[in-house]
């Protein structure tokens, strides 16, 4: 893919977003939709800007809660994924549990966390953690468990021990799986945080949106949604850049398909 083609794709992507917002704006005006039902994007954006000083602490709260929950989820997820990926027994024992656990809607878990830890930041962190951990565990385990047996044979015949196989083969080949899961997990962590904030908290975007809808301040609720979407994109982009730097080799097809 040439550079000009890539920048053309960026232009296309940007204009698609602009078009979508334009269509939203136009239909609000055209069909006379009340701002209490669906505020036009111009109102949402101006609300976000005007209310920013008041919103900022909440945005920060949500961001920090999400990051703490996500980082904890990452650490625990990698540890669990490593155990499950390396040991056949651990895989057989833990996998049904993991699947069962991930099938529980996290909404149902929040009240329990609140019961245990009171309302506020802690249950939000825990909800973010439990929401984002599953894809990390599964991907790390998959990456570790699917090393080509032939590559392992080559190394073992050379006399490599387990740690040499791990550092030279298993770990690098797991990286793309790991980063793919991080991109998903970080957006899921947001879902968890906001979920918990809407149920039991007095700070954070989730709380703001609950209060906004309760007082029919729909533009503010939408401003909260917009802020969440922007934060999500931002964090996704951060991990996409790190991924590209650490394991760009896994994305070779885009660059070399033509060659």
């Amino acid at each position: 893919m040439t550079l000009s083609q890539r920048s053309l794709d960026h232009v296309k992507s940007a204009s698609f977003i602009v078009l979508l917002f334009l269509a939203w704006e136009v239909s609000c005006v055209l069909f006379g939709i009340s701002p209490i039902v669906l505020p036009p994007p111009s109102t949402v954006i101006s609300t976000l800007i005007v209310q920013m000083p008041a919103l900022w602490p909440h945005i920060l709260q949500t961001l920090l809660t999400t990051m703490v929950g996500f980082l904890l989820g990452m650490v625990i997820g990698v540890a669990l994924g490593a155990i499950v990926g390396v040991s056949r027994t651990a895989y057989n024992v833990a996998y049904p549990l993991l699947v069962g656990f991930s099938s529980i809607p996290k909404v149902a878990v929040v009240p329990i966390f609140v019961l245990w830890f009171g309302s506020g930041t802690l249950p939000a962190i825990l909800t973010a953690l439990t929401t984002c951990i599953f894809p990390i565990v599964v991907n790390v385990a998959t990456g570790l468990a699917t090393t080509e047996p032939e590559m392992e044979d080559v190394l073992k015949a050379l006399g490599a021990n387990r740690s040499q196989v791990f550092w030279n083969v298993s770990l690098p080949r797991t990286m793309p799986y790991f980063f793919a899961s991080l991109k998903v997990a970080v957006t899921l962590a947001f879902v968890g945080t906001v979920l918990s904030e809407t149920v039991a908290a007095n700070r954070g975007i989730g709380t703001v949106m609950m209060m906004a809808t309760a007082s029919f301040d729909v533009p503010l609720a939408f401003a909260g949604l917009l802020a969440l979407a922007l934060l999500g994109i931002l964090l996704y982009a951060v991990f996409a850049v790190i991924e590209q730097r650490i394991c760009g080799w896994a994305n070779r097809k885009q660059e070399f398909a033509m060659g």
């Binding site: 080509e148 032939e150 590559m151 044979d153 080559v154 083969v169 080949r173 990286m175 394991c247 896994a250």
Partner: peptide, 10 residues
């Protein structure tokens, strides 16, 4: 050496 060259892509 096997039929599959198993060169590490990174």
């Amino acid at each position: 050496a096997f039929q599959n060259p198993t060169m590490l892509p990174w």
